[in-house]
Amino acid sequence: MSLSFNFPRPTAKADDLEDLYKAYRVDRSVILDLAGTHETPKTVREGYYEAYLSFFNSCGLIFPIPEPILEILAELGLSLTQILPNFLRYLIAFLVRAREEGLSFGLSEFRQLVLVKRNQQNPGTFLVSLRPGCHVIEDIPYRDEKWREQFFVFKMDRASMGEFDFSRLPRRWAENIAPSGSSSMSDEIRGLIGILRRDRSNWSTFDQARIRAVFAMPEGTDRAPLFRGSEDEAEHSQERRPPVSLSPGLGDETIAATRKRCRSSEGALPGSSLPRFVPEGDGSLFAAQSGLIFLTGRMRSAGCRLPSLVSSVEKEAYAKVAVASSKVRLLPYFP
């Protein structure tokens, strides 16, 4: 069955392409051009490829186009203009977060996090929606206006596509793609989601500088550790995690989060690298524990061995000794 797609006349102008060079730091070695009279996102002149302006000004795409993006498109058998901006944003966001964590991320992981769907309004194009429990990035826009009209072409060479073998990319639009497979969440994907959620990012933080810096790094090769909890725990573990804890075997993730908050606060204090403490009168055991949490983070960061607090009695005794020896209640104070 042939595709029925009403291609609008492209609205991209020469000034728009010049803006890509200047505002979006596209190197002049990348040859950009306006679409010809008879060119559409489906049919392009030999030696050239196609894209939408919105991919660069609102989706974070850069030149040369990162190889992982081209690799996933080639494996899906999709042309760049067959994916909606929503598709590209999720793909870039997941790839960036995975690289920041040093993890391997490809088509298999992507398709277990999202459902690839045919766009009924524009036949032959595809969008994605998150699978249940796979929410990692906040506020990724779902819809775009007039993205189809912002069409242009660029020459396929090393400047635009790096070392990728662009002959692998389809020259014709795919009519169908393989189904996404099982909707059940594997332990590997639960582990991946848990790691990607360490930095619960908002889409607005994925600026060009961050994306360029990440794709300039070597691709990660590690695999996410297996997550042995339930799907519900994987989905809500971020929200359930208490801000502080004195439980046995205090988790490194909680400590890392505590350190991060402390560093952020310290950075806001001119001329001071350490938090100040305020003395107070006799207080509750909980207050002493709050001070101990801060000290625990300091001890870990300095490489000190922490005491093993196995029982609640030991925890209480440790807290009382700290209060008695210091004569004050230690509380991190950041004005």
Rank of each mutant, 00 (worst) to 15 (best):
E233L: 09
S201A: 14
P64K: 06
Y318P: 01
R190D: 03
A319Y: 02
S264G: 06
T40I: 11
I62D: 05
G251P: 08
P275W: 13
D33W: 05
P170F: 02
R9C: 08
L292G: 02
D157E: 12
A216W: 04
V116Y: 01
Y142P: 00
N176L: 10
C134H: 06
D252C: 05
E163C: 06
S54G: 07
M185Y: 00
R158F: 09
D207Y: 06
C59H: 04
S272H: 08
M156V: 13
P10M: 10
M156Q: 13
F294C: 11
L103Q: 02
T296A: 12
G191A: 08
P10Q: 10
N176T: 14
A256G: 05
Y52E: 09
R111Q: 11
V128H: 00
D139L: 08
T254C: 06
C59D: 08
E145Q: 08
G297H: 00
C134G: 03
A98S: 14
T37S: 12
G124N: 01
Q208I: 11
G194S: 14
L91Q: 01
V214Y: 00
V328H: 06
S290A: 15
F215S: 03
F152A: 04
I69S: 04
Y24G: 03
G220A: 07
S4F: 11
R259G: 06
R118C: 10
E280M: 13
E50F: 03
A302E: 15
A324Q: 14
I140Q: 01
S326G: 09
C304D: 12
R158M: 11
L20D: 04
K146A: 13
G124H: 00
S54K: 10
V116C: 15
Y21D: 06
I193A: 01
I177E: 05
Q112H: 15
R171L: 13
H135L: 12
N6M: 10
F286A: 15
L84C: 08
K13R: 15
D187T: 07
F94H: 08
P332C: 07
E67I: 05
E266C: 14
P332T: 05
G36M: 12
E100Q: 15
R300W: 07
P141T: 13
Y333F: 15
M185F: 02
F166N: 04
A12L: 03
V44F: 05
E100K: 09
R143A: 13
E67M: 11
S29R: 15
T258I: 15
P218Q: 06
A213C: 10
S245P: 11
A288K: 02
W147C: 02
E188R: 15
T11R: 10
G194N: 12
A268Q: 14
L32N: 02
G47Y: 03
G162S: 03
S290W: 07
F166G: 04
D16T: 09
E138H: 08
T11W: 07
V128Q: 01
L113W: 00
Y24H: 14
P275Y: 12
G303F: 11
I31T: 11
V128G: 02
V310S: 10
E138Y: 06
G220P: 03
V244N: 08
M161P: 00
S326I: 13
D16Q: 07
D27C: 08
T125K: 02
R99H: 06
L127K: 01
I189D: 00
A302W: 14
L53Y: 07
